[in-house]
Design a protein around this nucleic acid. Structure first.
Lengths: 225, 225
DNA sequence: TAATAAAGATAGTAATACTATTGTTTTTAA
DNA sequence: TTAAAAACAATAGTATTACTATCTTTATTA
């Protein structure tokens, strides 16, 4: 049995907490697999219900629709990154070192030992890279934002922006740089694989190492006084 | 009658070139309006056909589906930005000044005088900001990329990366910085409006001016030797 | 053991994303 | 100028999606 980490997520994201039942955890586990395989567009509750030998109606008892399920997964992911940053930097005082840990955690959130049995962090990262930004690029952003559905991401941005400001209190764009680090990490891992002309990162070497190097170069240059 | 700029786009993006007929131009004009109003998810050919007093079948004669229509519009936009950069920087020699023009063109592509009667550049920019990245975040990227469907964006990245390398030939990430400029411009205009906690740009002042300032600050710091 | 909650089975609906066919204009070219 | 061809409109039809509703079975708990 795996260690019982329970990630706290906004209750509005689900009808019934999937972490609390076998079926719920099954939905999480196999939706990650299926979205990874099909992409969010071709993924349906029908297909998921067949995969897990259940029914559409049963899945609807947990999630209002696939958009909210994706939002749940994405929030889960950012909470996971936040958690990794916390444990990996808990004894570190120098903000520069802290920022290094943050970059490592963002880039390699999937490399870490999986600690929640039913979540495949590596596949989840792939989903976040491919479909993550779709959760807020909708006509419902404002409404969903007011319900706190993007809290995990905003919290992480806050955490990272504070470390950025600790490194250089005069830097004018700590929030933008924080989110830019997340977006760059995800975008360029995607570009390296699918649109190599849009990046300098190459899949021929270790993409993760290259990504870390690039992000470190970025923050060092930008935060130099 | 407006000046006849014809933007050259990959023929695989459409069944029948919409620039060549009244109905085609109507489809472009009103799809921009309707996608801006509804977002790409709720937009359908049915709704568009009603809006322009035509039929679904007629629209399908021009575009295979709404995804390809969006791809057409997004490519159109990046060609437009490329065009703006070209005419605005045609007499400029210093690469630093050129980069400044590039930033202005990216951020304010919508502020320019409209030169194509049936394209509302301002609404088109809003679409690119909200839905632009969805065109390549699909399971068909590789296939569509091999057909040249992302050429306009890649061309622009090439153009900008060359100027970046002219400014500082030792900078290791010219392509990444180029795409990062586009993505930042779009993302943070979106964040400023909908998720202000994710950015330092504020809608209270002139967002476009602030955006330009931020991007200039970024490139200056990053490209300083 | 009765009550209750969770899950499965089944059916049904409106909308979406198309394809196909036929008829009517409009354009063009002989 | 007229016949042919292309463009467009009108209509119908299909499979899939994104649900909602209801009813039955199974498991849990009081």
């Amino acid at each position: 049995m795996s260690v019982a980490i329970k990630i706290a997520l906004n209750g509005g994201l689900y009808n019934k907490d999937p972490q609390d039942s076998e079926l719920g955890r099954n939905i999480i586990e196999h939706s990650i697999e299926l979205i990874d395989e099909l992409g969010i567009e071709a993924f349906t509750f029908k297909k998921l219900s067949i995969r897990i030998n259940s029914t559409e109606a049963s899945i609807y008892r947990y999630f209002v629709n696939k958009h909210l399920l994706l939002l749940y997964l994405v929030n889960w992911y950012w909470e996971w990154v936040q958690y990794l940053i916390q444990i990996n930097s808990r004894h570190i005082i120098d903000p520069k070192d802290k920022l290094k840990i943050i970059i490592q955690s963002i880039v390699s959130a999937s490399k870490e030992n999986p600690m929640v049995g039913y979540v495949n962090e590596s596949k989840l990262q792939k989903i976040v890279i491919s479909d993550g930004m779709k959760v807020y690029h909708t006509k419902d952003v404002d409404d969903e934002n007011s319900k706190g559905f993007f809290k995990s991401y905003k919290n992480l941005a806050l955490t990272v922006s504070q470390v950025i400001s600790d490194v250089n209190p005069n830097f004018k764009y700590p929030y933008a740089l924080a989110t830019n680090l997340f977006e760059m990490a995800n975008n360029h891992l995607f570009f390296a694989q699918h649109l190599p002309k849009l990046t300098d990162i190459s899949v021929k070497t270790n993409v993760y190492d290259e990504m870390e190097e690039m992000l470190e170069y970025y923050v060092n240059k930008l935060l130099a006084e």
